[in-house]
């Protein structure tokens, strides 16, 4: 993420280089099974998750250590979110929601390490996550409620004349969900990381005045820390909101 001073003339900023998917070994074509930097950083995310939630809790202490407190904090945070939004029925989906949250949260933060690769800045990743949620919600909704699941598109609180129009809008918004869900997350991370890289390019080109972009990078980095946490939170809470459509009581 940090700019190695761009030698040569003028501004030669390549903010997108950090997002390139590369094979870990050799320089061959990228097949679906090739271990790439995606593999590496997702693996690191798994290790971080294991360290955070498994290793830190191995003593199962009644009075928790610091690590265990953090693990319990994550558990309690997501557990409460699922229970509050989806309802008690939704707790079956707690491991699922927790998986999404931990993956997005840890990937976002691992992406903040300079020179790292941000898996969640790729639309392929966030899109897959969002489609998973979309498919889960749709399947669970039809399995649990049957055709009554479609009632969520029929806004009974609106005047009868408006209902078909509203139903159309609701259906469109339902199918746009995976798009907004994924682009929100991927776009936020992509934009932030790219902007930092652009500033870093300025710093390389500005000589003595380079402290200005460096300060800007520090400020952006702070913002990106916030964005990483907030976007993980937003992604998870939206997942819960969508799951409520499938699991919870009708709410429109």
């Amino acid at each position: 993420m940090m700019a190695t001073a761009e030698h040569g003339s003028g501004l030669q900023i390549k903010p997108m280089d950090q997002f390139v998917v590369k094979p870990l070994f050799g320089d061959g074509p990228i097949e679906w099974y090739t271990p790439t930097n995606v593999t590496l950083w997702m693996g690191i995310a798994i290790l971080a998750m294991v360290a955070l939630l498994v290793l830190s809790t191995r003593r199962r202490a009644i009075v928790p250590s610091r690590g265990q407190s953090v693990a319990e904090l994550f558990y309690g945070f997501i557990h409460k979110m699922v229970e509050d939004i989806v309802g008690h029925e939704g707790l079956k989906f707690f491991p699922y929601v927790m998986t999404l949250f931990m993956f997005v949260f840890l990937s976002n933060f691992l992406g903040l390490i300079p020179t790292s690769f941000t898996t969640t800045s790729h639309i392929a990743v966030t899109g897959t996550l969002a489609l998973l949620v979309f498919v889960t919600v749709t399947v669970v909704g039809f399995v649990r409620k049957g055709p009554a699941f479609l009632a969520m598109f029929w806004v009974t609180s609106a005047p009868l004349a408006l209902r078909p129009i509203l139903a159309l809008i609701e259906v469109i918004s339902y199918f746009v969900r995976p798009l907004s869900h994924s682009v929100r997350l991927g776009g936020n991370l992509l934009a932030g990381h790219a902007v930092i890289k652009v500033f870093a390019g300025f710093a390389g080109a500005m000589g003595v005045a380079s402290f200005v972009p460096v300060l800007a990078i520090a400020a952006m980095y702070g913002l990106e820390v916030l964005v990483s946490a907030v976007q993980a939170y937003v992604f998870t809470i939206l997942t819960c909101v969508y799951l409520r459509d499938a699991v919870g009581e009708a709410h429109h």
Binding site: V38, M42, G43, A124, T128
Partner: peptide
């Protein structure tokens, strides 16, 4: 395909 495959493995 590469990203999606490794994402599924990770998840």
């Amino acid at each position: 395909p590469n990203q999606i495959f490794w994402l599924m493995v990770t998840l």
